[in-house]
Design a protein around this nucleic acid. Structure first.
Lengths: 210, 210
DNA sequence: ATCCTTTTGTAACATTTGTTACAAACCCGG
DNA sequence: CCGGGTTTGTAACAAATGTTACAAAAGGAT
């Protein structure tokens, strides 16, 4: 049944039938359960993950374990970074973790360059993916450069709502603090503020957006 | 003579001879003097600038005129963002300004997709460009996310030294403050600190890196 | 219910960054 | 050499963020 969904997804991208065949032949299904790592930083990508189902959280990390949330990868999206990693044979600069249980279609890098040369729709797909990631990295940059933590937090909550399609966010203050690279106390403080402003309601392990 | 340099540059990329011919035929020379805008935010790119000579400063801006420095484009490099803009027909998300007098080769977008399909070396060039830009955006993200202003400032100075090949940086505190999106007083304070630590020496309109 | 762990609330304080104001130093044109 | 603009230095203070410490509340397991 995942196959059906995958095929629909590929057709939806306008992929040529022979390309779809190749993708199905060459790739493999991979299930990743919530919280598991999809790409570890420093690892070498040899396959490109295409998200069939679920959400993947992409983050940047520094040496001493701090991290900063960048964006979510959702159904139908591929990890553009992996594409370059594959083509350039470079190490991953990201870490990616399954935000929910995920189903991925792993495409080995071997065929990539040829597909780009051969299939216009694939070319378009690859460049559109790049564009999206660029945009999202720019959003992350904008947040960090131009916004104070209270705004960043609220934007984070709204983005999370958007990505999950739910008004309820199941995260602890500690987790949120990690993703925004700040401390738990700061997040508690600002969440309380947002609550007072009537923008959210708080429960244990849960925040509801109003 | 710019043509000689351009051709050498293209050959250096391993471009196929027929591709070089096409690039020469289709493109046009553009000179941009120091301080002039190369890409205004919100403008639509129809040509891709390839830097023959000089340095271009690429920044992100927000609505109220604040900006944040992202990276420099130097000789031999193309603006990856313009490529996606062209292919996707989207508006520019950046602003780019000539940091010094620049000579550019402007390549109209029309031929792009065909070249990517046809020339392996061009494909490689495009993806390498993307990779570089991604890396540099990540560096910018790392700075903002994980570093305090004093470190960011020092890194900024070292990057500028790297890009210009000179130990002397001809900028005012005000200009630096703008690029790091902070205030002049903060920069003066931190530069004084760096001076006390023996890392730099300050003069009017000039900072020397030791 | 009781114990234990996790999560959240809060206070007090330190550090970093931003703001305002003004003086001093420098540079250029006349 | 004398104004007048620009650049830099500095102080005093405000606001935002980070840190430490501890208490209270919630939930799960036995």
């Amino acid at each position: 049944m995942e196959n059906t969904k995958l095929i629909a997804m590929l057709q939806n991208q306008g992929f040529e039938n022979s390309l779809i065949d190749e993708i199905l032949t060459v790739g493999r299904l991979k299930k990743v359960s919530k919280g598991a790592s999809v790409i570890a930083p420093g690892s070498k990508a040899t396959e490109i993950p295409l998200v069939i189902d679920g959400t993947i959280k992409v983050m940047r990390q520094d040496k001493d374990g701090s991290e900063i949330f960048l964006y979510y990868l959702e159904g139908g999206e591929a990890c553009a970074m992996s594409i370059t990693c594959c083509l350039e044979n470079k190490k991953s600069e990201f870490s990616a973790v399954a935000e929910e249980d995920c189903i991925l279609w792993m495409i080995p890098m071997g065929s990539l360059d040829a597909w780009i040369a051969k299939y216009p729709a694939f070319r378009k797909f690859v460049f559109t993916s790049y564009q999206k990631r660029f945009d999202e990295m720019l959003m992350a940059i904008d947040s960090m450069a131009f916004m104070k933590m209270d705004q960043r937090l609220y934007k984070y909550l709204l983005d999370k709502k958007q990505a999950s399609g739910s008004f309820e966010i199941h995260k602890t203050h500690e987790q949120i603090a990690r993703e925004l690279n700040t401390s738990r106390v700061v997040i508690s403080r600002l969440l309380k503020q947002l609550e007072n402003e009537g923008k959210i309601e708080q429960y244990r392990n849960k925040i509801e957006i109003l």
